[in-house]
Nucleic acid binder design. Sequence first.
DNA 1: ATATTTTAGTCTTATATGCCCGTAAAAGCA
DNA 2: TGCTTTTACGGGCATATAAGACTAAAATAT
Lengths: 149, 149
Amino acid sequence: MANDINIAAICNCTKIRRAQRHITRLYDTCLAESGAGVRATQFAILGLLKREGPKTMMELANMMTMDRATIGHNLRPLERDGLVRIEVSQSDRRARIVSVTDEGKKRIEIGRSGWERAQTEFEGLLGHEQAQSMRNMMDEVIGLSFSIN
Amino acid sequence: MANDINIAAICNCTKIRRAQRHITRLYDTCLAESGAGVRATQFAILGLLKREGPKTMMELANMMTMDRATIGHNLRPLERDGLVRIEVSQSDRRARIVSVTDEGKKRIEIGRSGWERAQTEFEGLLGHEQAQSMRNMMDEVIGLSFSIN
DNA sequence: ATATTTTAGTCTTATATGCCCGTAAAAGCA
DNA sequence: TGCTTTTACGGGCATATAAGACTAAAATAT
């Protein structure tokens, strides 16, 4: 059966997914405690829009390494709660321009303390250099151009 | 505003989530091409059950670094398709014993080629040593005991 | 200028993830 | 023994993720 190899132990996908779940629970918990009312991904999207300015959905999807449909779904609760604004682009009526609202910016500030607590907790346990090393490695992974797709 | 720091660039959670999405797309695509009819997480659960034998949901949740409710949700499609069996434990009627069926084992074999293609593609681009290093780092992350929760 | 192709986003469907609450059973305690 | 607490799951809810089909609009080709 050649089933001696322990796939779970060497599968890069399984490993990173497990680690991602663990980290996300930490950040989501801290963000929830801060009272920002946003999850990790939402916090990331809002922060990106605040820093980089309005972006189309495609641009957001690329910047977040996310499917365009996923961005659309993720934006819906944010739009419903008034944290982002979505408008038809004037220069290309197919595109939608997404921008963070004042309320969205407020939420970022509220959530920042929670994010910092999670970030501090994580790096305190793993070590700053190890964390930096991990982020660099993640950047490399994100940059890989797979032959499929 | 102290908004000069680029949260997206230093947030460990955002980075690992982005990388996870990228990797998962590769593995899911290859698994789909193999015709196994299972996704990355399902493949991991089936493989774990095949290798380690029947497990309770709690055990599965711990081994997968997953919420126990999540395991329950993830098992539903597998049970529906006859890839796993879920029975009440005789020694503890609260617990459910999950085991992989013959059909489930068959799916693993079918999917193995897809998994290997993804694994080869990933490690070919990132490098075997880098991949090993990444998995070790993920193991460290998984092992962290956060003070919250 | 018209026809074709490509691109941006939506809608549907399905899995993935985890919280909270409730139920039932086991474990611990008085 | 009987009461309380803990534990294992299920149900409901909400967000997260992406493939596939579809629509509309822009870009390109003829």
